[in-house]
Nucleic acid binder design. Structure first.
Length: 877
RNA sequence: GGGGGCGUAGCUCAGUUGGUUAGAGCGCUUGCUUGACAUGCAAGAGGUCGCAGAUUCGAGUUCUGCCGUUCCCACCA
């Protein structure tokens, strides 16, 4: 037996234990036809990422589920991996090169990719190492990367299939352009925020007239690309002007006035400048009226040559200059403050510029439909199910997905253009010559795919799809996906339609959604606020188990939670408790060989704690099966601390320190049995400390990670006996309370007199009652009068308890307590009485409840009599 | 504009399908170095479950409206 220190010190064993698990291959998933598979894909963290609290929570939940299922006998695959994070990584590499005075263009595509891979090889594994600190029991032998050979082949295959089906196409459309990252973005990658801006009212003169139309705009620089002004068809104010031509100031162009339903006559001036190349709505108007599209900006957000003298200026500088010039021309009518929603890049936060550009798209309508149906038909379930609404909301309103990115780090689009015949060729592997004309003059598309295109395939690309691998056949579809609600549109939804499209099956049966980990004040943790808390630092201070437990307890599925050191401390204190309780058991056990639990005559207290254990096992198992991890953790904690430590351990002390060897054996066997079960119940939540203690148990074989999760055994439920024993606990509590109430020093032993019909039960537990209640002896009497001394008394389920207290005591306190008690009892009597007087209740409520209510009423009536009697006796003294 | 979440003890939050006297942790009060643990033990105080209705024998829990707060989506240029 290993020596245990007096306090729980996780640093002494966490790293060692993780190494042992790894060495023994405890996390490896085996294809075992005798077992039921349970598969879970880790949401791959970005290779640029550092472990943050969000990861910690996500990983903890997954690991808890994985360990639980593994202990239940499933063949568990928890597959880890990382994401190449196209934009994020590229930005990082570009920044690094800038520090060296280099640019992408200078090093070229090849040189850039070489640097990126180097960076990935050096730093991409950092987060993986950090995950290990948390105790993650994922199968590292299957570690995947979205750009490894397997996943890349899957990406090409998926693209190829979609292309052949016409579900991926190339076209010129309005997309979100990030001038910071210089690439197109998907709709999901745009974040909107309320920005303070202005509303400028510009006058556009009507040609050959003194008249003008006033339009209002928040983006003056786009006027250089205006190709019309639109008014509502029924707006009388402008009906005479429809069809006329306006002179577009600051340019040499003329633009028409068109009528379109899109315009809201109530808003602004009722006339809208139309810039089809730089606004999604204007784009639609432009299409309806066959207006030309004039793009006035470059990729980096500066104005291009179409902007005339503003060419070369940054868009915001151009905005200022346009306003100034309009003002100088007397065409600025007024300026108003105006806040409006502006889209920003989710990576670099630059304001997104809606632009028309040629990109690759995935046709969404045919893919969205089956993905919606799958959730409607419950083939995949969201937990909690309200998140299905977010999912539906996205899929029902989805536009085609822009998947091409003007970046270099990522999966290059598997499309080639023939210089000979102009054919477009999509192929899984690089073609040598053009299949149409035989020309070798082929050029691959320059763009890469959206990072999420490869993530969308994650549940099956990692298993070797499109190959029918053993892993794929055994583990797919996966069982559960654990992730935060913030990436439902980015990822969950896309895995769903991709899985259904490519494999014919939903990629997972359950989606367990969790919330965000916020800071102590409820703010989002973020780099810019500097309020992020490093999980590794917390692990260093408190241990991984404490962090894990603190992230799971008191959290409802899907709800945000706040991180605080205080919570981690509470978890640490609990684990210290577990540690010391274990130490207590093992110290008292020493080298003694105790018989098995079933060979011993158990005492009421033993049966009580075993009964409580069984109830706990059942509740915890049920909660875990429903993914209610917080409830499960609460139930275990409650049982361990309150039932096992505060009661049972104390109850065993008379036996342990006594001379009755049989009772000692019984207590030790029970302590050991319950402790063993506690460790296994707790292992999914606190894997390290339970493994460490388990290794110290005399009867343990092998690692707890491979042990079986406790099973409910109805033979050990001892319902009635446990219920009876609760009366002993109540008695002890009553004595303690009386002593405190009357100011009796705790060390002073009191004599107990009992009026009870359960003498046998009390006698069986006499040692415990005396010790825990702080009493010297117990006498049985027929009634209070037979004692012949002044007493203070309590009514309890066992009967009535009397304590003679002599002159030392504060009887006034007891008197006031009793009258308060009387008030409470009276309130209960009128409540229960009222209920029972209600005919509707008696006739409609379940008989069981009516019976219970009746029993309660009788009990309180009896109590009332006794308490009144006590009160009278006290008045007399 | 549409859709969620949250509102329960001083604070942070649980509360599974409606059914004992609404819970936990922290904090607070009082007392305790009781041979595992002061990272502890015991006994307490503290709540008209946001407001108003409705359904029901019975509502923290279901429905409607409102107030506060927060998030997501859409968006009027």
């Amino acid at each position: 037996m290993r020596e245990m220190s007096t306090t729980y010190n996780p640093k002494q064993f966490e790293d060692r234990i993780y190494a042992e698990w790894m060495k023994e291959g405890c996390f490896r998933a085996e294809i075992d036809e005798q077992k039921i598979p349970f598969a879970m894909m880790m949401p791959p963290p970005n290779i640029t990422g550092q472990l943050h609290m969000g990861h910690a929570m996500d990983e903890t939940m997954q690991d808890t589920v994985a360990r639980f299922k593994r202990m239940q006998g499933y063949s568990v695959l928890w597959l880890p991996g990382t994401d190449h994070a196209s934009i994020a990584t590229e930005v990082k590499i570009v920044d690094k090169m800038r520090q060296e005075g280099l640019s992408k263009e200078e090093v070229g595509r090849e040189g850039f990719l070489k640097r990126a891979w180097e960076w990935k090889n050096n730093y991409g594994g950092r987060i993986v190492e950090q995950l290990k600190k948390l105790g993650s029991s994922c199968d590292w032998s299957r570690l995947a990367f979205t750009m490894d050979e397997r996943c890349s082949a899957a990406v090409r295959e998926a693209f190829f299939r979609l292309y052949k089906k016409g579900l991926v196409y190339r076209g010129s459309r309005m997309i979100n352009w990030c001038p910071g990252c210089k690439t197109a973005l998907s709709d999901a990658e745009v974040e909107y925020s309320e920005d303070a801006g202005s509303f400028w009212y510009f006058r556009y003169p009507v040609e050959n007239s003194e008249e003008f139309i006033t339009v209002a705009t928040t983006r003056p620089e786009t006027m250089l690309g205006d190709t019309a002004v639109a008014v509502h068809p029924e707006d009388k104010r402008f009906s005479a002007l429809v069809g006329k031509t306006l002179r577009l100031p600051l340019t040499d162009r003329s633009i028409p006035v068109v009528a379109d339903e899109y315009v809201d006559p109530e808003f602004g001036t009722g006339a809208v400048k139309i810039t089809p190349a730089h606004d999604p709505n204007d784009y639609e108007v432009g299409k309806r009226h066959s207006l030309p599209m004039i793009c006035v900006m470059n990729a980096d957000g500066t104005m291009n040559e179409r902007a005339g003298k503003f060419a070369g200026l940054d868009r915001y500088e151009a905005r200022k200059r346009v306003v100034e010039e309009m003002k100088a021309l007397g065409l600025l009518e007024k300026t108003e403050a105006h806040t409006h929603n502006v889209g920003h890049c989710y990576r670099c936060h630059a304001a997104v510029e809606p632009t028309v550009s040629e990109q690759w798209f995935v046709k969404m309508a045919p893919l969205a439909k089956p993905a919606i149906d799958a959730v409607v038909k419950n083939k995949t379930k969201f937990i909690p199910d309200r998140f299905a609404k977010i999912y539906f909301n996205w899929l029902e309103n989805i536009r085609d997905w822009c998947i091409s990115r003007q970046l270099w780090w990522g999966h290059r689009i598997p499309v080639w253009y023939c210089g000979g015949c102009g054919a477009t060729i999509c192929a899984r592997e690089t073609p040598a010559v053009c299949p149409e004309c035989g020309s070798a003059d082929l050029k691959q598309d320059e763009d890469v795919l959206d990072t999420w295109f490869s993530s969308a395939l994650w549940p099956f690309s990692t298993l070797g799809w499109p190959e029918e691998t053993k892993d794929f056949k055994y583990f797919y579809p996966t069982d559960v996906l654990v992730t935060g609600y913030d990436i439902i549109p980015f990822w969950v939804m896309r895995m769903m339609f991709s899985g259904i499209e490519h494999t014919g099956k939903v990629p997972f049966r359950d989606v367990l959604i969790h919330g965000l980990v916020r800071d102590e004040q409820g703010r989002k943790m973020s780099k810019s606020l500097g309020n992020g808390i490093d999980p590794l630092d917390v692990i260093d201070r408190y241990g991984a188990d404490s962090l894990r437990l603190s992230l799971l307890t008191g959290v409802a599925p899907g709800n945000d939670t706040r991180y605080s050191d205080v919570k981690v401390e509470a978890a640490r204190n609990f684990l210290n408790k577990v540690w010391n309780a274990s130490r207590f058991v093992l110290m008292n056990l020493g080298d003694r060989k105790v018989p098995a639990l079933f060979e011993i005559r158990l005492q009421p207290a033993d049966r009580w704690i075993i009964s409580r254990l069984m109830a706990t096992i059942r509740e915890v198992t049920l909660a875990m099966q429903k993914y209610e991890l917080g409830i499960a953790a609460d139930k275990v904690t409650d049982f361990v601390w309150n039932d096992f430590c505060d009661w049972y351990i104390e109850l065993t002390k008379p036996a342990l320190y006594g001379t009755d060897e049989e009772r000692k054996d019984g207590a030790l066997a029970t302590l050991l049995y319950v402790l063993d079960n506690i460790l296994r119940l707790l292992h999914p939540f606190a894997p390290f400390v339970t493994e460490e203690i388990y290794g110290c148990l005399p009867n343990s074989t092998g690692k707890i990670i491979r042990a079986e999760f406790p099973r409910y055994n109805s033979k050990l439920a001892y319902r009635k006996e446990a219920k009876a024993f609760e009366d002993i606990i109540e008695l002890i509590k009553a004595v303690r309370a009386v002593k405190v109430s009357v100011g009796c020093p705790p060390a002073r032993k009191v004599r107990l007199f009992l009026v009870t019909e359960s003498k046998r039960l009390v006698n069986l537990n006499k040692g415990s009652v005396l010790r825990l209640a702080g009493a010297s002896e117990i006498d049985y009497v027929e009634n209070g009068a037979a004692i012949g001394e002044k007493t203070v008394s309590r009514v309890c389920d066992l009967g009535q308890m009397f304590i003679p207290l002599g002159e030392l005591v504060d009887l006034e306190a007891e008197r006031s307590r009793l009258s308060k008690e009387l008030d409470r009892i009276s309130a209960e009597i009128s409540r229960a009485g009222g209920k029972l007087a209600n005919n509707n209740f008696v006739s409609k409520a379940p008989a069981r409840l009516v019976e219970e209510e009746r029993a309660k009423l009788n009990k309180f009536l009896d109590m009332k009599k006794k308490v009144e009697q006590q009160l009278r006796e006290l008045e007399e003294t």
